[in-house]
Amino acid sequence: MPGPPALIAPHAILSVVTMNLALNAAPARAALVLDVDALLERLPAQVRANLAWTKAPIAEQLRRLQSESVADALLDDVARAIAAPLQTLGRAFLEFMAANQDVLRAAVMDDIGRDQRRVESYVDDADAVDTAQWAFGFLRSFFNVTLPLLELVVPSQLENAIHLGLEDSRKADLLRGQIALMGAIEAVKSEAPRDKVVELVEVAFLRLMRARDHFRQVGFWVSPFPEETTEQRRHDTMRYAQRLREVLTDDDWATFGQARFGDLR
């Protein structure tokens, strides 16, 4: 006698959701690295020696972001060029840290925090610091949520994660934002002009914000400032309004006036 119709248990729904999240995070796992030197420092000497070859090709590609105009095509090109060494490094890091998720999470948060402070002190500009806080804060929140889910990613999905990720706009923007931030960190290390670092931070912000829009579309909300209060939010709204008053010119508003949304008829 047939039993009652199968019900989807809550945990089954959750597993579908988390799997989807993990798949979205697969390219991010491959690009878990923001600072190659810092990541290598965390590995045992023997492993570090074996992976030393990854530094030069990654740095060489990231330096292209200092000398060329930073557009999506260049970010994609750099991402593809460093995919192999990046995935090798990411895998080694995760394997070494796999025994303890809390240690892994703490290490990632430490590294992001240190990179953020380094970039912020270098740009020395309140607006650029604010932009960097958003970009690093977004990544911090993203990894905080997705790191525990990465166990669900099967190894075969990782092999081409960056290449496949770039073919999916939802994942491509996340990767582009990370690559731009990696470029900013590399630019700080090589003492590139401040304007270039600011440009890379701003590009990272814009791509990560687009990634955030993609995530929201599937119901995944990542806040760069998860502990923000209502008062802070409203204070920042006014601060950003003041900033717009400074940067937008009469010409901009004239163009805006001409481009108002008219009739659909």
Binding site: L206, M209, D236, T237
Partner: peptide
């Protein structure tokens, strides 16, 4: 207008 877009995005994000 990258800087302007960044400023605009930040403002709209808080609305």
């Amino acid at each position: 207008g990258r800087r302007k877009l960044v400023a605009l995005r930040k403002f709209l994000d808080r609305c």
